[in-house]
Design a binder for these strands. Structure first.
Lengths: 209, 209
DNA sequence: GATAATTTCAAACAATTGTTTAACTTTGTG
DNA sequence: CACAAAGTTAAACAATTGTTTGAAATTATC
């Protein structure tokens, strides 16, 4: 399917509404209005509401795998450097595309759309395999520990970041940061998250940064 | 509101359907049929679908805070022991009530129901405050490090566990455990998760188990 | 500038939604 | 037993849902 600017105009408004109301909670009428197009345009451009969701996933997930692949294959970087870049980029990406990651989360709970499910499954497993590679490289160089649970490690990275997004307001309230501007706070949170995750990964992998 | 056995009979079927289809995706008709009661009984017993969700949250979240409070206040346990018990109990609870924790996750993404939101908010903050207490106790005894980000630590615990549940099938596939029975696998995952989290918490808090 | 293709629109579509009704059965109480 | 309260039911309710329609407007092509 060819995605034009018009598609994207609708898609990104849909993304916002899916993130704030859920797939079933966001109506086609709401999306059309938010995107400034007629109700019938959603069917015209995407075929259906479901296929619009699928288009959103294709659009957003397209670039993800390639980025990681080039990072892992990069021979100029030491394994621990790759780990740190991985963390930096992941936290960045999630912060930048918060709405989409919220949708991803809900879609994983409610496995309904088989196309989305397949995209998610492929991404997850290829991610795990690539990071497995990275870890084995580090182990061969004797800089990483033996017996590392790749999946759990990934769960910690994705889970901690996801929760950080969901709990932003609690983080503000708990740390007396309510006066801080949103952009400023987001930058702070990215910083905190990165060093937190790096600390954790050092403990799991056993290297000294 | 008084919750009877009849209420619970409906509530727990609703819980399953909310977890697998989302709040908007699970229809009152589906829930009534699954619970083996007439459609009109949902309104009769709970007033509305929304109030049924609120009743579920009250029911499930009631016991949570008290358990943690007694643990933290227990003077017979050392701080690091409390941390390990906290992890054990949390992982247990989530594994045992997977459906509910999936619903919690979706409800945090889609802040729609203000009653649910308030319950969640109260629980989160009281959790954070209690664990703050625990950490300060450990710091006073010089067994925990200084400068610990309580919220991020909690995010790691809840996030890693949540992701572990959502990624069960991928964990199986990635680690060649597809033949394993569900109960057996769940037990294995609980074990892995606990030691993983304990390892992480040791790194954050700085104690030696 | 005529004709064809694409895009946009208001209106209508049928299906499904949560909730209510009013009649009924069952249960509890004196 | 009588009678009120509580529980249960099928049917109906109005509102909302995603999608389709067919005509109008716009754009592209020759």
């Amino acid at each position: 399917m060819i995605i034009t600017e018009k598609h994207r105009q609708i898609l990104y408004k849909a993304e916002e509404l899916f993130a704030s109301h859920g797939f079933d909670g966001a109506t086609v009428r709401d999306i059309a209005e938010a995107a400034g197009v007629n109700l019938a345009m959603i069917s015209y451009y995407f075929g259906s509401k479901e296929k619009m969701m699928e288009a959103l996933f294709s659009e957003r997930m397209g670039a993800m795998k390639i980025r990681l692949e080039t990072l892992i294959k990069n021979q100029a970087l030491a394994p621990f450097q790759k780990v740190e870049i991985l963390i930096d980029e992941y936290v960045n990406k999630v912060m930048e595309k918060q709405s989409f990651y919220k949708i991803m989360l809900c879609e994983q709970v409610i496995n309904k759309n088989s196309v989305v499910l397949k995209l998610l499954s492929e991404l997850k497993l290829s991610y795990a395999n690539l990071i497995q590679e990275l870890i084995m490289e580090g182990q061969k160089q004797k800089v990483f520990k033996k017996n590392i649970d790749v999946m759990l490690m990934l769960n910690t990275m994705t889970g901690t970041t996801t929760q950080a997004i969901l709990n932003k307001e609690y983080y503000k309230a708990f740390n007396d940061l309510k006066k801080m501007k949103t952009t400023e706070f987001d930058a702070l949170l990215v910083d905190k998250l990165r060093s937190h995750l790096k600390q954790l990964f050092k403990a799991i992998l056993g290297y000294e940064g």
